[in-house]
Design a protein around this nucleic acid. Structure first.
Lengths: 192, 192
DNA sequence: CGCGGGTTTGATGATGCTCAAGCCCGGTGG
DNA sequence: CCACCGGGCTTGAGCATCATCAAACCCGCG
């Protein structure tokens, strides 16, 4: 159950067995079925989720009620609304399960405690935040400078797994285009 | 010279006079003239800059050579390429002065040392990174969901100072539109 | 005074949206 | 086991938004 977590942590920081056991004890395993929610708008993000198996989506609604996919998560990825999780303010996001999923959850009450118990874990979380920031900035630049087709192909090259497992209309909203446009782009690409 | 820095730090963390003196000693004052560069593509971001006076712009070139404004900075703001600054990898960005500016610079060699000397400062930097991430995510959502006109008006409402002091074609590239389109949008808005 | 970069204006065209309809396919109930 | 939904994907036609290209204008600076 915790092998993937161990692998992902030790990619970024070195942990001896006792330290890993300590960190591990802070996580609550939970399964969540397709279409269930881990977080809903106006609630506080109580959990930081590590995805052991399955697929999640973080999205929000714009002022016209359109659904915008902000982030997807697959095995080995982390999901939460960092802002709400860290500040305790209500969130503007929703996190839903797109497949039956196994999660490891860390409650926000424990957040400071883990850092005291295993200081290296704080470094890990900072690296995670940092990487999220960099990835979001790059995505912003592509959304400002690339055509819809280029944005799709670069997503498909970087994360083929996302294309395979995530419904198309959600990928469309992630790219900032309509489902119709994405359908036409795919048709174009198959011909070429 | 350091009043604005003091003010900005104490908005987020509490520092006693000695602690502030310690932090202050880590910064190098530097003036930079309009059109000079603080950072150029393929270099390593050696400095984290606090803007005491003036205006800076962080931008990059897309694959067609178009200039994209990623971030602006005015008095009281911080500028660097966090990725390059923290990892030591070469940057893909440029930072140029749009006005004659006064900066307070912290060299990346000192970065870990300040944290040892004044641990609270680390908290400050994390809050800064965090806020950058949240702001970038929000901007991504607007760029995916709002029209060019709505993006312009919300920027103008949130940061009128930016509109006043930054050349129009740079604001256009920040919004992901051409200078011509921005000119027409402004004309429209004046009529209404 | 004239040069040159930035902004404006106009005409045209491409990209992607909207609205509407049909299709495909998996899930549900008879 | 089959028929019938219903959601998601596709297709088409017309349209809005924004880009491109070209030219004129404006104004600060040398």
């Amino acid at each position: 159950m915790h092998e993937l977590l161990y692998q992902k942590l030790t990619e970024k920081i070195t942990l001896n067995p006792e330290e890993f056991e300590t960190v591990k004890a802070f996580f609550i395993p939970r399964t969540i079925k397709k279409r269930q929610y881990l977080l809903q708008q106006d609630d506080v993000a109580k959990y930081l989720a590590f995805i052991n198996r399955g697929a999640l989506r973080l999205y929000t609604l714009d002022n016209r009620g359109n659904d915008i996919s902000v982030q997807f998560g697959l095995e080995g990825w982390w999901m939460t609304d960092n802002y709400s999780y860290l500040t305790g303010e209500p969130t503007i996001y929703n996190i839903e399960a797109l497949e039956d999923s196994e999660l490891l959850l860390m409650h926000r009450d424990k957040y400071e405690q883990v850092f005291d118990a295993v200081p290296k874990f704080e470094r890990f979380v900072r690296i995670l935040l940092q990487n999220n920031f960099i990835a979001t900035q790059r995505r912003l630049i592509s959304s400002l400078s690339l055509s819809a087709e280029d944005r799709y192909t670069s997503l498909a090259n970087a994360y083929p797994e996302i294309i395979r497992r995530i419904p198309q209309h959600m990928i469309a909203s992630y790219l900032g285009i309509t489902p119709e446009t994405l359908s036409r782009i795919r048709k174009q690409l198959i011909k070429a």
